[in-house]
Amino acid sequence: MTGLIRLVLMLTAITALGACQSRRGNDPIISAVALNDTAKVTAYLAEGGNPQAKSKEGDPLLYIASGPRGGVAVARLLIEAGANIEGQSADGRKILQNAASWCDIEMVALLVEAGANVNAAGADGTRPLDAVCKSPQDRREKVIEMLLAAGGLRG
Rank of each mutant, 00 (worst) to 15 (best):
V8S: 02
V8G: 04
V8F: 01
L9M: 10
M10K: 07
M10V: 09
T12R: 09
T12Q: 10
T12M: 08
T12L: 14
A13D: 13
T15P: 01
L17M: 10
G18H: 06
A19T: 02
Q21A: 11
Q21H: 08
R23C: 08
R23L: 14
R23M: 12
R23T: 10
N26P: 00
I29S: 01
I29A: 00
S31L: 15
A32M: 05
V33A: 12
A34S: 02
A34P: 00
D37I: 15
A39L: 13
V41M: 05
T42Q: 15
T42K: 10
A43Y: 04
A43P: 02
A43N: 06
Y44F: 13
G49C: 11
Q52L: 04
Q52W: 01
Q52F: 00
K54F: 02
S55Q: 03
S55R: 03
D59Q: 02
L61Y: 05
L62W: 09
L62R: 02
Y63C: 09
Y63Q: 08
A65K: 05
S66E: 08
G67R: 15
R69L: 08
G70M: 03
G71E: 02
G71K: 07
G71M: 05
V72T: 14
A73F: 07
V74L: 04
A75Q: 00
A75K: 01
